[in-house]
Amino acid sequence: MDSEIALLTVFVLAAFTGYEVVSKVSSTLHTPLMSGANAIHGIILVGAVLVTGHADGGVELAIGLLAVVLATLNLVGGFVVTDRMLEMFRGKKTPPGADAATTSPPATGNGNGNGTGPGGSAGPGHGASAGGAA
């Protein structure tokens, strides 16, 4: 029971944190913020993996795997789509030809997550994104 109360405490404090953190945002960023928050709840993938890892029987396994696929879509797709959105905000003096070059390296990088840093600095982002990741 103690650990349950501890979790409840965490829940309440996290709720206040979430509320405070975004209480002042310009409307310009509403879309990326919603999209980014959307990606964060994709962390349900951890939960989906845990229940699938302890599934007994075919039906439970099938349901668990479905949850894993859906959660992966949410997590990975969410972060990639948010990154693409935010990439647009940076565009100051990007030559038109560089656009294609920018899109592909970070995206492959995002596929395995930790490749994002190097991918970002390879593009004409002047290493800004890599610095941010570190």
Binding site: K24, V25, G36, L45, F79, G113, T116, A128, G132
Partner: peptide, 27 residues
Amino acid sequence: LALKGLSSPKTARAGNLLGAVAALAAM
């Protein structure tokens, strides 16, 4: 921190990447 970063234009992209890295590490 990712949410915090996403609330300002300058840090938004870094915030999103931070979130992605954290999620990957957690996995």
